Simulated assay, not measured.
Amino acid sequence: MPALLAKADELARTLMMGGHGRRRAGNGSEFWQYRPAQAGDPARSIDWRRSGQSDGFFVREQEWQAAQSVHFWCDQSASMQFSSLKDQVSKMDRAALLTLALSILLMNGGERVALDGMGRPPGNGAQQLRRIAQVLCDTQSDEFGVADGADYLPQSRAVLMSDFLGPMEAIERVVGAAADRGIFGVLFQILDPVEETFPFQGRTVFTSMGGGLSHETLRAGDLKARYLDRLAERKDELQNLARQAGWRYECHHTDTPVQVALVWLFQALDGGAN
């Protein structure tokens, strides 16, 4: 967990992003800043203690507390533990790093963050971040993961990270229910480059990461066209699902820079990615 936290913090710092949160003056209970009093400010808004320390009058402003709640689902199933090369990160490692780095950026902007499986509502602060990191260090034995979504707050935001290679019905239910509650979200598909190219030839035994599925063939190359068609079909299904829900969809490969993925996710939550 400490290594994951350190790596995520370093990744978040490289972007030096800000302004995503709602940190500006408004109705709230948290102190934000002092500003010089202006004509029209009511006398009750003047902070007399602060004003007594200078020659002018100052108004104590509270922070506008309209921070978004952002819910994450990071698929930790057996399928996500796949990596085609020893020196290449697994899909789950990439998803965990992006989840934690994006959480850091959002928290720095004043947002509240939660993770499926954490058993706690969206929150902010170092303790919440450690809870998220702790859950991200776990793995699951199920072949494919399924998001929950039952505790997502209405009008909040959601980021679902997975390879989305399992049954579509489960993800359709989660996204549909979330959209009905006014939740905007992102479907972020993470794939290993081998899963895009299918470079197999000759006799090959395909075994799922969980060991529950296996298929042997003497002519693996003959399966390539059908496999790529099925993968393209799955991507189309995800894109259509996101479009119907008013969400965004993106496919990321583990051999591409993680910074590019983080920028896209950050902008997508802020409404700036296409």
Rank of each mutant, 00 (worst) to 15 (best):
A8L: 07
D9M: 14
L11D: 06
A12L: 02
A12F: 08
A12D: 09
T14P: 00
L15Y: 09
M17D: 09
G19T: 09
H20V: 10
H20A: 12
G21D: 06
R22S: 06
R22T: 12
R22A: 14
R23I: 15
R24F: 07
R24P: 01
S29E: 14
E30Q: 13
F31A: 01
F31K: 06
W32V: 01
W32Q: 06
Y34I: 02
Y34T: 04
Y34M: 03
Y34P: 01
R35V: 03
P36I: 02
Q38L: 09
A39F: 10
G40S: 09
D41N: 08
A43P: 00
A43R: 14
R44S: 07
R44M: 00
W48R: 15
R49M: 01
R49K: 14
R50M: 00
R50K: 15
S51F: 10
Q53R: 15
Q53P: 00
S54V: 04
S54I: 01
S54N: 05
D55H: 06
D55G: 03
G56C: 00
G56Q: 07
F58N: 00
F58K: 00
V59G: 00
E61C: 04
E61Y: 03
Q62T: 07
Q62E: 13
E63R: 08
E63D: 05
E63W: 05
W64S: 13
A66R: 06
A67E: 15
Q68T: 10
V70E: 02
H71T: 07
W73P: 02
W73V: 12
C74Y: 09
C74L: 04
D75F: 08
D75E: 06
D75C: 05
Q76W: 12
S77E: 12
A78C: 11
S79D: 15
M80C: 09
Q81R: 11
F82E: 09
S83M: 09
S83P: 01
S84T: 13
L85F: 11
Q88Y: 04
V89D: 07
S90Y: 12
M92L: 10
D93K: 03
D93N: 05
A96W: 11
A96P: 04
L98W: 06
T99E: 03
L100W: 10
L100M: 05
L100N: 02
L100F: 08
L100C: 01
A101W: 02
A101L: 02
L102Y: 09
L102N: 08
S103W: 08
S103I: 06
I104A: 00
I104F: 03
I104L: 12
L105P: 01
L106Q: 07
L106D: 08
L106A: 10
M107C: 12
N108P: 00
G109H: 04
G109K: 03
G109F: 12
G110K: 02
E111Y: 14
R112V: 01
R112Q: 08
V113Y: 08
V113H: 07
A114Y: 14
A114H: 13
A114Q: 11
D116T: 12
D116H: 12
G117N: 07
G117V: 13
G117W: 11
M118D: 04
G119V: 10
G119C: 06
R120T: 11
R120L: 14
G123H: 13
